[in-house]
């Protein structure tokens, strides 16, 4: 099971890197989402997979009787999902505003902050 999920993570990363290499901001956003999901899946997998045993200590015991699912990766992923979602929403709005203001979805034509043919530096002094 771990191997299958590891391979799936690999597919996620491949797809996301392909998308991130695109010039279109929308594709890059999709790439970022997939990258985030790939990382979350990866954290889940490295926490080792255990099926159907909730991490709850029964009454009268101080530690669980059997092997349990690892709860920590789930807590980590939950945090990462929330943060990733917030940042993704911000980037989505930012992209939309940039599209409105700069009239560009293509990173090649977004050259306001870095002019395309920069002036030569002054030759005096």
């Amino acid at each position: 099971m771990e191997h299958a999920l590891a391979a799936l993570c690999g597919v996620f990363f491949t797809v996301s890197i392909y998308m991130l290499l695109s010039r279109s901001l929308i594709r890059m956003l999709l790439g970022i989402t997939i990258l985030g999901n790939g990382v979350n899946l990866m954290i889940f997998t490295v926490g080792r997979l255990t099926r159907e045993v909730p991490p709850i200590v029964p009454d009268g015991l101080v530690q669980p009787a059997t092997d349990i699912a690892n709860p920590l990766p789930q807590a980590l992923i939950l945090t990462a999902i929330v943060i990733g979602f917030a940042l993704f929403s911000f980037l989505l709005v930012l992209t939309y505003r940039a599209y409105e203001e700069l009239d560009a979805d293509n990173t090649d034509t977004m050259r306001l902050a870095e002019p395309e043919n920069p002036p030569s530096p002054p030759l005096s002094y």
């Binding site: 991130l20 901001l25 890059m28 970022i32 990258l35 985030g36 990382v39 990733g84 940042l87 911000f90 980037l91 930012l94 992209t95 505003r97 940039a98 203001e101 700069l102 990173t107 977004m110 050259r111 306001l112 902050a113």
Partner: peptide
């Protein structure tokens, strides 16, 4: 406008860095 342009580049690349 220039801030939006700068923020797109800052935002994407830093997000990838933290990921």
């Amino acid at each position: 406008r220039i801030q939006l342009d700068g923020a797109v580049k800052y935002g994407f690349l830093n997000f990838i860095g933290t990921t």
